[in-house]
Design a binder for these strands. Sequence first.
DNA 1: TCAAAAGTGTTTGTACTACACCCATGC
DNA 2: GCATGGGTGTAGTACAAACACTTTTGA
Lengths: 228, 228
Amino acid sequence: MKPFSSYKNPALAVDLVVFGYHEQNLSVLLLNRKEAPFKDQWTLPGAFLQIEETFQQTCSRILKTKLGMDDVYLEQLFSFDDPARDPRGRVISVTYYALVNPHKLEIAAGKMANDVQWFNVKKIPALGFDHKKIFDKALQRLKSKILYFPVGFELLDELFTMSELHQLYECILGIEIDRRNFSRKMLVAEYVINTGQKREGLQNRHPELFRFNKKLKHHNFQLNIINP
Amino acid sequence: MKPFSSYKNPALAVDLVVFGYHEQNLSVLLLNRKEAPFKDQWTLPGAFLQIEETFQQTCSRILKTKLGMDDVYLEQLFSFDDPARDPRGRVISVTYYALVNPHKLEIAAGKMANDVQWFNVKKIPALGFDHKKIFDKALQRLKSKILYFPVGFELLDELFTMSELHQLYECILGIEIDRRNFSRKMLVAEYVINTGQKREGLQNRHPELFRFNKKLKHHNFQLNIINP
DNA sequence: TCAAAAGTGTTTGTACTACACCCATGC
DNA sequence: GCATGGGTGTAGTACAAACACTTTTGA
C-alpha cells in the first residue's frame, strides 16, 4: 500500500436537497449559478467540504450563508461518484436532504439571495451537474421514509390540523388517502396528540390542533401504503 | 468561492461490510491489519479511492485483491465523516455492504490471505477505526431491507429449500417466525418459485427446491414483521 | 416401525377499506 | 339557513397469527 500522503484525492462536495411545503405544494430550493460551469442554470445548493468540517457543518454553512436559514432537519441521502459528474474534474458529492418550514423562514426570506428560488417539485427546470438524479433520489427517499417515520412534521408548523397533515401526505405521496381512515390511523398509532386547542378565524368549523408525539417509539408505526 | 484547485481535500476510503451465511449463521469478513494504525487489530476490508475509480470499482478491487472474490451483491451504505475516525488524518469513508455465498467462494478460499477471517456476527471482536459503527449500520440495513426486498437470496445457493430460506430469515432478523405462515407468504407473494426438483440424500423426507423469482415486481412484497 | 423433518389446511382475530351522517362556523 | 369543511361510527373483508395432522424418508 502506498504511503498515506501520496494518494491524489478527489474533491468532495456536499449538495443539499431542501424541501419546503408551500400552499399545499411540495417544493425544492434551487440556486441559479453565477459562475461556470452551468452558469445561469439552476442547481442544488452545495459547497466543497473544508478539511476540518463534518458533513453536517458543511450543510449548516450552505444553509446559513447561501440560504439564510439554520436548525433544520437533515438526513444523509447518498454519495455520488460518476467521474464525469463535474466538468472541472473529479468531484465526489455527498448529499443530504433537508426539510424546512418556510413559515419559520419568512424573516430569512429577505436574506435569501435573489438567485435562490422555491420550485414546485412537479415543475422543476433542467438542472446542472447530475443534480436531477440527486433530486429524484431525495424525493423517492422522502416518499418511502414518510410511511414509517415522523419526517413530515418538519414541514409543518408545530401545531397543525388533521387536514393539513392529511394534505401533506397526499401531496408527498401523490395519491389520495381516505381522510377518515388516515385520521384514525394517526391517532391510534399515537403519532399525533390532540392539544385540545382549535384553529380560530376560519370560515367553517374550527378544526382541532395537533402536535407531533415526540415520545413515540417509532418502530410501531407503519402507514400501510404500498409505495407507488 | 475559492478557485477549484485551491481546496485541500480529505482522503477518501471505501470500506466494505461483507456478509456471508455459514452453517446457519450470519457472518462477516474481517481483516487483520498488518500495519499501523490499529496494527494486529481486526478491521473491515477497505482501500483508498483512486482518482479515476468509481466506488464500485474500488469495491471490486478490494474484493478481488484482498479477498479473492468477485461478482457479488453490493449496495452503498453510508458515508462516515468523523474528523477523528482515522488517526493518520482526515479520511472520509464511503461504505458498501456485500452479500456473498461462501459456497461459491470455496475455490477462492485458498486465495484468501490468512489474515482474513469470517466471524459470526454475534461474536465479532473489537474493531479498529470506527468500523464497529459501520458494521452496526450494515446489519441494521440488512435487517430492514430483507423485509421488503429480495436481498437474502444472494446469501444462498441458486436452489434452496424452504427451510433454508426460513432459517436464513430467522437468523438475520433474530426472531422466530412460524414456518408454515412464512412458507405461505413466500409462495403467495410469488417471491420464490417451486422448481419441482427435490434435494436428495437427506435422512428425512426430501424437501422441494425453490429458486428466487427474478421477475417479481418487488413493490408488492412486504413481510409484515415490525423491525426489532 | 420409528424418529425427524417436510408438506398442507383451518380457525380465529385484528386491522384496513369503504362508505354516510351529523356538527360547527361565517356569511 | 346554507354552504363548506370537520368530526365520528360501522359493516364488510382480507390477511396474518395460531395451531395440528399427515406424509416421506433413512435407519
